[in-house]
Design a protein around this nucleic acid. Structure first.
Length: 408
RNA sequence: GGGAGAGUUCCAGAGCGGUCAAAUGGGGCAGACUGUAAAUCUGUUGUCUACGACUUCGGUGGUUCGAAUCCACCCUCUCCCA
């Protein structure tokens, strides 16, 4: 099976500008393609990971990848599909985030001579002169068309500033620029980027009279139509300091039945026939598929060793006989103890399991806290300092959240 | 530039002088059920030294015994006209 067919079979391809041409280019290793990453945070997330996987797959098929850091476009911020204005980032933040992205990307993709290339659009965008830019490309954009673009729909109701409106032009300019400097003839990106990407192929056609292509990756949505890779507390990050390997593993382990196979197909490198075999699994058997998904992904992101630790920890906790080894841990200092004891509520807050004393109180009253395998019966429960020595104390919030507290 | 309207707790959105820590829905958290799933049902959802106290309704000042609610100015946003 050739690469294009494989991508299609995995459900990764959302939209393409010219299927025949793209198939031809990609399958024969003739594409030089770029994917843009705007430095909106100090870590990559699952969406970026999908893009990086795509990059890797296409690279293995002989195509030349360019990872484009959005040091310039990040100065503006993409309004696509958003209902409100993005927080405008400071120059320092953008630089910091770019550095973080760069470091993480190097784990997944090999950069260097003859391999993948990494460039930053700050290198050309920041130098642009307003009047010159307008004279060069301004006449190639129809405001009427831009306003019709799907990505601005939501903003037409709440208002779109001229500042953000320009984002599309910046992104189009990137493609136009790299087409000339790097022979970049294709752009990939999330499906929400479709309008911006078309703006680029259109600009190249108008300015240079040449054809360039664009293809979007299906956005990872769950069966309820919500973007995956997000929790109530924010994204599922690739940086272990922001989302621990254990939490990362658990996110995928806890995925809904309806979404398991789709995720395995889109996110893992398992052979398709193996995945098709799982397609018949039903009911609680799907739990096995969830374990496979969680294990595969955690391995890809954090390495075999971390993945195994996460799996062991999960097995330990849910199959009884909790292993405290890989559990998130809080070290309690002297200040937290009063006369050698600490109250249950303070303990919950100290471990970061509750945001406030009141929340902890509620939780205990509702019977949601277990400490050292014993349900906490009252809000005035107290623990001795000695209890925390050695292995420490296991605090369990609800059914799935385990935390360990120790003394120094 | 002119005119109209809006800013309420995580979000949407009621409230229009005391009975407001603020209806309702969503989301979150917990309990029951279960397969570490989904659906469903129940409770809960500002803070605290907790049957009481304290701080919140864009900002600042004012009227009043009393303000999310009234007035003034300011800021932000939306809509209509140019």
């Amino acid at each position: 099976m050739q690469i294009y067919e494989e991508l299609k079979a995995r459900g990764l391809i959302a939209q393409v500008t010219d299927e025949e041409e793209i198939r031809e280019l990609v399958n024969n290793g003739k594409a030089t393609f770029y994917i843009g990453f705007d430095p909106t945070a100090d870590s990559l997330h699952v969406g970026h990971f999908m893009a990086l996987c795509l990059m890797k797959r296409l690279q293995m098929a002989g195509n030349k990848p360019i990872a484009l850091l959005g040091g310039g476009t990040g100065m503006v911020g993409d309004p696509s599909g958003r209902s409100d204005l993005r927080q405008v980032m400071t120059v320092d933040t953008i630089q910091h985030n770019c550095d973080c992205f760069k470091k993480q990307m190097e784990h997944f993709i090999e950069f260097g001579e003859g391999k993948a290339k990494m460039i930053n659009n700050a290198d050309w965008l920041l130098k642009l002169n307003y009047i010159e830019l307008m004279r060069e490309v301004g006449s190639c954009f129809s405001v009427n068309n831009m306003l019709r673009a799907e990505c601005y729909k939501q903003r037409m109701e709440k208002g779109l500033t001229f500042f953000e409106f320009n984002y599309m032009i910046m992104q189009a300019y990137d493609f136009y620029h790299m087409y000339q400097t790097d022979g970049c003839n294709m752009q990939f990106g999330g499906d929400d980027q479709w309008s911006n990407m078309l703006a680029g192929t259109e600009l190249i056609r108008r300015k240079l009279g040449k054809d360039a292509y664009a293809m979007t990756i299906t956005l990872l949505m769950n069966s309820e139509g919500k973007k995956m890779g997000k929790t109530a507390n924010g994204a599922v990050w690739l940086d272990p300091a922001k989302t621990s390997p254990f939490d990362f593993y658990q996110y995928w382990r806890n995925i809904g039945d309806a979404d398991v196979l789709k995720c395995i197909r889109m996110l893992t490198f398992l052979p398709l026939d193996e995945i098709d075999a799982m397609d018949h699994w039903e009911g609680s058997q799907l739990n096995r598929a969830k374990e496979i998904l969680a294990m595969e992904l955690t391995t890809l992101i954090h390495g075999t060793e971390e993945a195994q630790k996460a799996e062991e920890a999960a097995h330990g906790l849910f199959a009884g006989g909790a292993s405290t080894e890989h559990m998130p841990t809080t070290v309690l200092g002297d200040a937290q103890f009063e006369n050698g004891t600490i109250g249950a509520l303070s303990l919950l807050v100290a471990c970061g399991l509750c945001a406030s004393n009141g929340e902890a109180r509620r939780l205990v009253q509702q019977g949601g806290v277990t400490i050292n395998d014993k349900k906490v019966e009252g809000v005035d429960a107290v623990y001795q300092r000695d209890d925390f020595a050695g292995e420490g104390v296991i605090v369990k919030k609800g059914k799935k959240i385990f935390h360990r507290a120790v003394t120094q």
